[in-house]
Amino acid sequence: MSTFDAGGSQLDTSWFLLLAAVLFILGTIGVLIRRNPLVILICIELMLNAANLTLVAFSRQLQNLEGQLFALMSMTVAAAEAVVGLAILVDIFRHRDVEDVDDLSELKG
């Protein structure tokens, strides 16, 4: 197997961590200020991706492959979450016209 080095070993791990923090914050802002439930799900995917980036960055820093395996697992969980969340959304949208997450407040009592 040929050696694959993209030259990434010159890069500091903290740069990746900072980028992941920025992406996570962007996702948090989206969840907090957007009103469309679909966009909120998209922003959650963004946050999960940022967390994945930290996992892989630490995996390289510590020379431990388990970080990458964890990233794979979280990718699976994110896919399952997207599927179930979107199915719930489709069901809600089918029954009534929701254009704002604030309309979904039945559980408030």
């Binding site: 694959f4 080095d5 993209a6 030259g7 990434g8 070993s9 890069l11 990746f16 980028l19 679909l38 799900l41 998209i42 995917e45 991706n49 994945n52 980036l53 892989v56 960055a57 995996s59 390289r60 990458q68 990233a71 794979l72 990718m75 994110a78 896919a79 997207a82 599927v83 979107l86 959304l89 489709v90």
Partner: peptide
Amino acid sequence: LFLLLSAQFIFVAQVIVYAGAVMVLFLFV
């Protein structure tokens, strides 16, 4: 970035699973 971190398999999974499958799901919805 995953490729830069020498995570080749995660790179492939990211492109296929996320950029491919999950995003197509969002587009369908």
